[in-house]
Design a protein around this nucleic acid. Structure first.
Lengths: 219, 219
DNA sequence: AATCAAGTTGCGCGGCGTGCAAACTTGCAC
DNA sequence: GTGCAAGTTTGCACGCCGCGCAACTTGATT
């Protein structure tokens, strides 16, 4: 019976998982900066050297979770119909982030990460990496249409702004709700994402508080 | 005759300058990742230990230049009249970046930095730091007006988007012109900044190539 | 000149990241 | 199964990093 993944691949995936799990456990238990790679390796049941075969640093191990998270959103983006306005595609893709199953592992990481400058860096890197991928995805989409010339500035400005708004929404949500993952909290996150995209779509014309405030008051 | 800066402060400033100069020299000469803190210290005429009294890492020393650069733009932003639309203030502030004297030291750093993932990180950090400061500046501005409630989401989305657009403009400019600092090149940068802000102001409604392309063709 | 704070330096230590070669594991063909 | 090739893990060693500490030098103050 031929398995989909070979033994080797399964082992590697398991080890990888063990490492990230160990890293998260230690982050929870000891706080950022209070444990070493050696600690992670020991907890994961591997050697220090093997750890470095998988990740270049503690931060990289933790950031891999964020990457997985953002990749999910990216997949959604790529699946949107090509004739849809980009902003709408982005909005829809970001909406995935408010799904409990998807956001749960990240919310905690967000909390723990924000305590350390060192770790915040790699988060930045993850967002930036995501931006680059959105640019690629958007470029492909434009290239598919007849009008051949792609405006690189438009692309990069848009992608960067979309990500910035997504980040802003998450920051505000987090500041407001902490690690709360209740349906109400997620509703707020959704609305924040919608509002941020709304601001972007209207060129930030109205600084007036939007529906989020109202929604919050209703709850 | 009381000098404005004490001897001590002068010395510290000089040492600091010597370090960043040394770091840049070595970056030019050996390329990113091919020199150590010890090398920098030696070039700057100080001990390794003293280097760490000033900067926490090689990247931090190099990033201090970028910080200075972005701080210049921030000062400009804070000096804008409070009743001016934020986007216009931002546009005006970013325009300072196209000034030859200001941009010259950075353009080269940009080139050298983009060769190294390690160094690109600290650039990201610098931009992010700038974003946070814009948020503060904008918040102060809003707080000064009668309508007390400040929409944090609006603030963060806008600041993030502005910075993203500035970054996008610089990326495109760099990809297009390399380290070229000629007046024509800087004119393009200016126009890119204007266009990026334009896209932002119109909610990215038109993906059509803008005046930058035309300007480029005219040159 | 005496004194004290501020700044520099050498030393030592634990941690990081990696090349290398020796084990060990898995996949495959016979 | 046996054996072999390819893929993985591991220990070892090395150079570099970042910082605490204690001695030392320099600058300001009186």
């Amino acid at each position: 019976m031929p398995e989909l993944l070979s033994r080797r691949e399964l082992n590697k995936a398991a080890t990888r998982q063990a490492i990230t799990d160990a890293a998260l456990t230690l982050l929870r238990g000891k706080g950022p900066g209070n444990f070493t790679v050696e600690d992670i390796a020991e907890t994961a049941g591997i050697s220090r050297r093997t750890f470095f075969n998988y990740f270049g640093s503690t931060e990289a191990a933790l950031a891999s979770m964020t990457h997985g998270f953002l990749d999910t959103a990216l997949q959604q983006f790529r699946q949107r119909p090509a004739d849809e306005p980009i902003l709408e595609s982005a909005r829809a893709a970001l909406m995935q982030l408010a799904d409990p199953m998807t956001v749960a592992p990240l919310a905690e990481l967000f909390t723990l990460t924000h305590e350390s400058a060192q770790l915040s860096r790699s988060e930045l890197e993850a967002w930036d990496h995501c931006t680059e991928q959105i640019i690629s995805a958007a470029r492909e989409r434009f290239a598919a249409t007849p009008g051949a010339a792609v405006d690189e500035l438009y692309l990069r400005s848009l992608a960067g702004s979309v990500i910035s708004c997504g980040k802003a929404a998450m920051d505000v949500w987090f500041a407001r709700c902490g690690a709360d993952l209740s349906p109400e909290s997620l509703a707020i996150l959704r609305q924040l994402l919608i509002d941020a995209m709304g601001h972007l779509g209207t060129g930030f014309s109205s600084p007036a508080p939007t529906s989020t405030t109202l929604l919050k008051e209703r709850l």
